[in-house]
């Protein structure tokens, strides 16, 4: 049985991360996202498939793009949505999460989209409530829908993922976006490299089959797609890099550095950008940039994930096996 024949692409109840998903499952999600792109181009941008489902967007960390993208996806599928922004600073996080989850369950919700500052929070929640849980970023662990939208954007641009050379540049060690992308890219058969200051490259990352470049020029010469990560300003304060100016001078992606690159090379960024730090404006706004297509694809990917998970419950899987309705 292929992933296509299984309900929900065989994803089960939750999407916690891309680690452990097969290339086939990931491709099934991307394929499901394709028809959802068109819905956002309609005059009435709405289909009724999740009518009556209640989805809670539970954001313990600030987020603009991801939360709005999920909210658009939910509304375009006709789900009812509630946004909860919570600060995890005043209470112990574990207790808060269990309590919050119990309260939400008591209000009969169907799905939770959660961003949380602690790695593992999404799995913790998923194991404790019957609702579907989608990880919208948990600490430095994973951000699976971001990686899926990146894969979709790459597939749109190149027509394939297998054998594609992708280099992630920047703060790899603290990045959930990098982690999810590495798992996802490897699963679909892409070649993955990372590039950045030694202090921001995880030790032993080569063991995953990931190449490491010390110089961004080498990375540019090697790759088909350059994935530029946001450099979080706290990293400088914590002493991982000497200064933002120094970082830009050595690792900043500029049009000068890209001048000699293959003309098909594309640049991705998960946003929000620090223009003039990790990426220069003329690159971000230039012809190689697929940053805005990434944002557009984010809505389609999240629609696909919500759609696939909404039915991914055991009793539904059984019903689906019985055949046509």
């Amino acid at each position: 049985m292929t992933a296509d024949e299984r309900p929900g692409a065989g994803l089960g109840k939750d999407l916690v991360g891309l680690e452990g998903l097969t290339g086939e499952q990931i491709v099934a999600i991307l394929d499901t996202a394709e028809p959802f792109k068109e819905i956002s181009e309609r005059r009435i941008k709405k289909v009724p498939v999740l009518r009556g489902k209640t989805i809670v967007n539970l954001f313990f960390e600030p987020s603009t793009r991801t939360r709005i993208s999920f909210e658009f996806a939910e509304k375009r599928l006709s789900a009812d949505t509630v946004n909860i922004s919570a600060s995890g600073s005043s209470v112990q996080k574990g207790e808060t999460l269990v309590d919050t989850a119990r309260n939400l369950e008591a209000m009969r919700i169907d799905m939770v989209v959660m961003r949380h500052g602690s790695a593992g929070a999404a799995r913790f929640l998923a194991e404790r409530i019957p609702s579907n849980v989608i990880n919208a970023g948990d600490g430095q662990h994973e951000h699976p829908t971001q990686a899926l939208l990146d894969l979709l954007t790459l597939r749109d641009r190149f027509g394939r993922l297998e054998g594609l050379k992708v280099c992630i540049v920047g703060d790899i060690v603290h990045s959930r976006v990098a982690r999810s992308n590495i798992w996802g890219l490897l699963a679909v058969g892409a070649e993955v490299a990372v590039c950045g200051p030694k202090t921001l490259i995880p030790l032993g990352i080569e063991e995953l089959g990931v190449e490491v470049f010390g110089r961004v020029e080498e990375a540019i010469a090697w790759c088909d797609a350059l994935y530029v990560l946001r450099l979080q300003l706290e990293r400088m304060q914590a002493g991982f890099i000497p200064s933002l100016r120094e970082y830009n001078r050595v690792f900043g992606v500029s049009s000068e550095r890209l001048a000699a690159a293959d003309e098909d090379l594309v640049v991705l960024h998960p946003g929000p950008m620090n223009r003039g730090v990790e990426i220069d404006s003329d690159v971000a706004d230039g012809p190689r940039s697929v940053i805005l297509p990434q944002v557009t694809n984010g809505v389609a990917i999240r629609m696909a994930v919500l759609y696939l998970l909404a039915g991914g419950r055991p009793e539904m899987a059984e019903a689906a096996k019985r055949g046509e309705g």
């Binding site: 068109e38 046509e324 309705g325």
Partner: peptide, 23 residues
């Protein structure tokens, strides 16, 4: 038209991963 997202049996049979384009 691909009517998958307008079906009335989503609750019974769950999602179908293969949806064709609507043009």
């Amino acid at each position: 038209l691909d009517i998958t997202l307008y079906r009335d049996d989503f609750e019974q049979v769950g999602p179908r991963p293969v949806i064709g384009p609507t043009e």
